[in-house]
Write a protein that binds this DNA or RNA. Structure first.
Lengths: 133, 133
DNA sequence: TATATTACGGATAATACGAGTCTATGATAT
DNA sequence: ATATCATAGACTCGTATTATCCGTAATATA
């Protein structure tokens, strides 16, 4: 069980955008160079963030991406869910009674992790940050 | 990112052994039937638990598996680590400075989950449990 | 208006990993 | 001696991740 590389790219991109002037559009090319990943692949990841309403994009010359206005409230968990999906990490598919106690323990453990990730706002991290990438 | 099915099998097996008479040896055949999984596959999983020191095995006729003496202290996290490994769920492999702040947030979130799983002893769950599988 | 630039979308490929099977080997009761 | 049972290795299969390639749509600028 591992977080995907895509999640890592997404988090780094969000923090980099946070460190840039808010109004400025930044192209995927620049973002990809920093992270040493192909533009086409990163592009797909960014599209997910756009659809999740975290960033906005502009096509055409001098186009690119920038944060949306509600950036202050975006948490780590938001980004992770946008990339990895929101399904539970543990699902007992056995046919033994209605409620699996093991499942309940696992889900509540996962909720502890999510709680921490929900409290970590990207904007707060951006402040303490000297250099992102 | 998902917990593996093997982890689910391992947890259910441990709880089933906990509900059985402690001294009695139980064959993989019986354990596999309950969970509707093949004996050879479950066998591989159980071997990992043996090597992790959680259960002990006896070969030959009337052989099988049973809990070890230290069962009271075994936690969910112990079982999970035995099956999934102990590596961190998030590893930033970018070459940007010595310490990745994102990584630190992710790891501390993971630790919150692990803390909860470490506090959940299998023996405690076995008590509240009417039927395991 | 033409062209360059940039994001978006679909198809495809490569790789890794999870899940599971098959078979051989070794240990141990009866 | 034989049946039973755990262990180990090689192997297959399916699916998700990690990409790549290319065509299309949108937009600024000359």
């Amino acid at each position: 069980m591992k977080f995907s590389k895509a999640t890592n790219y997404a988090l780094h991109t969000m923090l980099f955008l946070a460190a840039s002037p808010q109004h400025k559009l930044i192209g995927v090319q620049q973002l990809a160079e920093r992270q040493q990943v192909s533009t086409t692949y990163l592009s797909k990841i960014l599209t997910k963030l756009v659809k999740a309403g975290m960033i906005e994009s502009t096509s055409g010359a001098n186009g690119g991406y920038r944060l949306k206005r509600n950036f202050e409230e975006i948490s780590f968990l938001d980004v992770i869910h946008a990339i990895e999906g929101t399904a539970s990490l543990f699902e007992c598919e056995m046919n033994h009674g209605p409620e699996c106690l093991i499942q309940q323990v696992m889900v509540s453990a996962e909720m502890k992790m999510e709680e921490h990730l929900r409290n970590q706002k990207l904007s707060e991290l951006a402040k303490q940050m000297p250099v992102v990438l």
